[in-house]
Design a binder for these strands. Structure first.
Length: 559
RNA sequence: UGGCCCAUGGUGUAACUGGCAACACGUCUGUUUUUGGUACAGAAGAGUCUAGGUUCGAGCCCUAGUGGGCCAACCA
């Protein structure tokens, strides 16, 4: 009925196995837990698709939980952006949660830990604590404060909480094992004092819980069954379980953490910290710059939610290091846009084409199909006149037989219009072509059904009437980095690999039908690529971002 | 000098409890086409890091080696 034999990924195998070992299907619960300290990127999109995809597959709730335990880095702006991005992708979270909602519960549990002799206040400097922690190769040493009395610990924690102590003066540490081979188990810090305004709790709390103390307990509070995170948290699992042991009530569901490899995309960086660096250094114009691999950047670039979700599904999840080529992402946008984007004609690098035997002053309105992949897309009209604009590289005075475009003496089709034959060129003093003259076959009108119109010619060009052309700004984007993996070079910083030509702004000449386009409208500029109307557009000037060029087997031949 | 994780065509993933390695992207050929796009048909490309072991039989299990990654923030 439901099992389509679609291969399961290892995460799904884990769930299926748990289902056969006692977990009930209605106990399944997942979560996506971003820290609101930056915008979501394509890597998060994979995680979102994984977690929300599981929610859909198992009909289980998926919570959106903001891991907001560090007021020094987090802001409401990011909370809003994250919610916007997830919604745009088309997912609905079951409950909007905040780790900060659990501060009191966490505090109460911390008190309990102290009473059980499982936590203590350390009053050393962070340097001293780091020193005693040892290294991966050498065991740590116990803090001199490790055996403070329960009363003193309770009293100090209370003072920390009330803001009666200074930042950095004391921390609360779990009493685990200073000799553990796992550094995270060497009495990890649970609370530190931060005198900053928190975006939700304001100044109510002076102490803030650390990630490890917060995450698993939050999962437990929400009764999340499976807590999926990236591989770098694998060593945290032991601590996750240890903390859970301290508060776990066997009547309740016990969450489990499992890890998958983060997805790396070629020619970009997938790290909030590095993306923030690109923003603050002014390399890009904000988190939603169309060159950014952020969800909002991809959106502005013209990607669709489906294209991103299909991408995430198709690359799957694994546990090994990976570098996914951007061509994979690009395939997914093209596939989606091909089905839905109306086609229009826009000339990006114009040269004038004059039809010598076409009547002066005449304007014909020709019918053009909006999308041959979608009959319901209908038709539009485009004006045709004696003077047109075509792409410079669609003409060559003389060319070999592999060149399917306009040359002197050869015929080509003008898309949706007539068959023309190259006659002559006019050049300026420097030898640049300023005008191409041609003749047209009046009987060859597209769609007329005449014998002449059915004639096969070697190529078809897009064009626009010079008189009617609408000048538009076109932003041609290219990959942000010249290296496939800019941030894994041992010698050089990733900032050294920034592609200086990642953005080229030009003026294009569009057919007049686009005039009333709205922001985020997507088009295929025929024979060129997919473009989207940018939010910087005004009623005076349309601005298009190039999402991705069409696949181009000619450029390889031409090389 | 430690602990843990990982290792399948160029890239990313599959291969249920061991039974002659599959899918997608990319690449290359053709066909169709008023987009050198799309669609369709087809091809090449790995014998599963290495060496042992268990087994009638191993990509799947075991051991060792090699290679890569992670771990010493009062970040998440």
């Amino acid at each position: 009925m439901n099992n389509e034999a679609a291969p399961l990924n290892f995460i799904e195998h884990i769930i299926e196995e748990d289902l056969t070992k006692g977990y009930k299907k209605d106990q399944l619960c997942f979560r996506f837990p971003p820290e609101p300290n930056g915008y979501l990127h394509i890597g998060h999109a994979s995680s979102i698709c994984l977690n929300f995809g599981l929610g859909e597959r198992y009909n289980a709730p998926v919570n959106l939980r903001f891991d907001d335990t560090n007021p020094a880095k987090e802001e409401q702006e990011f909370v809003d952006a994250i919610k916007r991005d997830i919604s745009w992708l088309g997912y609905e979270w079951a409950t909007e949660c905040y780790a900060s909602d659990y501060f009191q519960q966490l505090y109460d549990w911390a008190v309990q830990l102290i009473k059980n002799g499982k936590a203590y206040v350390d009053s050393q400097t962070s340097e001293a604590i780091a020193e005693q922690k040892g290294t991966p190769n050498t065991p740590g040493k116990p803090s001199p404060f490790r055996n403070r009395s329960v009363e003193e610990n309770l009293d100090l924690l209370e003072k920390m909480k009330n803001g009666e102590t200074k930042e950095g003066e004391h921390v609360l540490r779990a009493k685990v094992n200073m000799e553990s081979p796992n550094m995270l188990m060497r009495d990890p810090v649970m609370y530190r004092t931060i005198n900053k305004n928190h975006h939700r709790t304001g100044t109510d709390w002076k102490i803030f819980p650390m990630y490890d103390w917060t995450h698993g307990e939050s999962d437990y509070i929400e009764q999340v069954s499976h807590s999926f995170c990236t591989l770098e948290f694998l060593p945290h699992r032991e601590l996750y379980d240890w903390f859970l042991d301290q508060v776990y009530d066997s009547e309740k569901l016990r969450p489990k953490q499992r890890e998958f490899a983060r997805r790396n995309l070629s020619h970009t960086v997938v790290s909030k910290r590095k993306l923030a660096q690109l923003v603050s250094a002014g390399v890009v114009n904000g988190w939603d710059d169309p060159r950014m691999p952020t969800i909002s950047g991809l959106r502005r670039r013209g990607y669709t939610p489906d294209s991103i979700k299909n991408f995430a599904d198709s690359i799957g999840v694994g546990k090994r290091e990976n570098l996914i080529d951007v061509s994979h992402l690009e395939f997914n946008v093209r596939e989606d846009l091909n089905k839905i984007a109306p086609r229009i004609m826009v000339v990006l690098d114009p040269v004038k084409l004059i039809i010598d035997n076409y009547p002066e002053g005449k304007t014909e309105m020709l019918e053009a199909e909006n999308n041959q992949e979608d009959e319901s897309a209908g038709y539009r009209e485009v004006p045709f006149t004696k003077e047109l604009l075509i792409e410079r590289d669609d003409f060559l005075e003389e060319a070999n037989r592999k060149f399917f475009r306009l040359t002197i003496g050869k015929e080509v089709r003008l898309k949706n219009a007539y068959i023309i034959k190259g006659e002559s060129v006019v050049k300026d003093a420097d030898g640049n072509i300023t005008e191409i003259h041609c003749s047209y076959d009046p009987d060859s009108k597209s769609g007329s059904g005449s014998e002449a119109s059915l004639r096969k010619v070697k190529g078809t060009l897009h064009w626009v009437s010079a008189e009617h052309a609408l000048p538009v700004e076109v932003r041609l984007y290219d990959r942000l980095f010249t290296e496939a993996s800019p941030d894994t070079n041992k010698e050089k910083d990733f900032m050294e690999f920034i592609n200086p030509d990642s953005l080229q702004v030009i003026t294009g000449y569009a057919e007049p039908s686009v005039k009333d386009s709205k922001i985020e409208d997507k088009f295929q500029f025929q024979r060129l690529g997919y473009f989207v109307v940018d939010k910087d557009s005004t009623s005076q000037k349309l601005i298009f971002n190039r999402t991705v060029p069409l696949r181009d087997s000619w450029s390889k031949l031409a090389e």
